[in-house]
């Protein structure tokens, strides 16, 4: 391999470009809106992203297996409604929240079962369950919101612990667990393998079904956790929570360099993608106060990232 070969075989160009782009946003902010970069501002603005970041963890792995989970918002809604209704019937909000996360995890298991047993494409399965979960949540709650949770529960969403919002610690804990599972066990390799060639995996004794079932269940769990944090943060449990959140999550993951066709991408890229999306979105609304502009910028970012991905990724990335 010559010099060009080394450059081409370096696998992390996409991540470096994302870092540069994040740097550009910060530099712009430094020049025009220095207050945007202050610690207290950044800390408070960060509360807008943690739930999405949590949802990105399972979504990254699922997309690496060439799957997708569109039903995360629906599972959030079912969790929130379960939480709200049990709390209203006098249960402690902590117990209710645990039950809510349980319900969301079960929803994830259901997705996983349909994907693995009935072998329907995850896009179709989760498109169907997205509507079904949301509908069930609306029906159960009759669209009535539940609020006035105790302050101690609100701390989960609004509190600050050791200098960071509580949801940030939830995300980082979950990131650490996910990263260990991917890096230390065979699960990580399995995810990539399933994404690249599921048929070959079945012959190679890779437990494809168990991997997929586990990932969709994880997605349910993460949706439940995100819903609990959201309910605690906004002090309201209702059925329209997380409406359209799947698109933001997928945008962040794909911006992070995870290929929608499976087999490519990593958690580092995803974290950078989330960071870039978050800082860009917040900076645009900070500077221009024009909500419509945000949609345009998000769309451009997504296209830019896909183009970069194509230019920068050697064809053999993650296959050697």
């Amino acid at each position: 391999m010559g010099e060009g070969g080394i450059v081409r075989s370096f696998r992390y160009w996409h991540e470096i470009v994302l870092l540069v782009l994040i740097g550009v946003v910060f530099a712009f902010a430094q020049m025009f809106e220095p207050r945007f970069l202050q610690l207290d501002v950044q800390r408070e603005l960060s509360t807008h992203i943690w739930e999405i970041a949590i949802l990105c963890l399972p979504m990254t792995l699922i997309i690496i297996t060439a799957g997708i989970d569109l039903s995360v918002g629906g599972m959030m809604a079912l969790c929130a409604v379960t939480l709200g209704m049990l709390f209203q019937r006098g249960l402690s909000p902590w117990v209710a929240a645990t039950m809510g996360i349980g319900v969301a995890t079960l929803c994830g298991v259901l997705n996983g079962l349909v994907v693995t047993r009935i072998r329907v494409h995850p896009l179709i399965v989760t498109l169907a369950t997205m509507a079904a979960f949301r509908g069930a949540a609306e029906g159960l709650s009759l669209a009535r919101p539940v609020s006035s949770f105790p302050e101690a529960f609100g701390w989960l969403g609004q509190g600050v612990w050791w200098g960071l919002p509580v949801p940030a610690w939830c995300f980082m804990g979950l990131l650490l667990l996910t990263a260990s599972a991917v890096g230390l066990s065979r699960w990580g390799s399995y995810c990539y393998a399933v994404g690249m060639n599921p048929e070959a995996c079945r012959f190679a004794a890779v437990p494809v079904n168990r991997v997929l079932l586990g990932l969709y269940a994880f997605s349910g769990f993460a949706s439940g956790l995100a819903a609990v944090l959201f309910v605690a943060r906004r002090n309201t449990a209702k059925a329209d929570i997380g409406m359209g959140i799947e698109l933001l999550v997928i945008t962040a993951v794909v911006t992070g360099g995870v290929s929608i066709f499976g087999g490519r991408g990593n958690l580092l890229g995803m974290v950078l993608g989330v960071l870039l999306i978050h800082e860009t979105r917040e900076f645009v609304s900070w500077r221009w106060s024009r909500d419509e502009l945000n949609f345009v910028v998000m769309g451009l970012l997504l296209i830019l990232s896909v183009l970069l991905h194509r230019w920068l990724t050697p064809a053999n990335r993650n296959t050697s």
């Binding site: 991540e15 202050q38 610690l39 960060s46 990131l175 990580g188 990593n266 974290v271 960071l275």
Partner: peptide, 24 residues
């Protein structure tokens, strides 16, 4: 991958909520 995830964590901890805050 693990090393990079470690870096990612560092970025996640330090970069996101902090930024390079000037006095302002």
């Amino acid at each position: 991958g693990l090393i990079l995830v470690g870096i990612a964590l560092g970025v996640g901890c330090g970069g996101q909520p902090g930024g390079e805050g000037p006095e302002g």
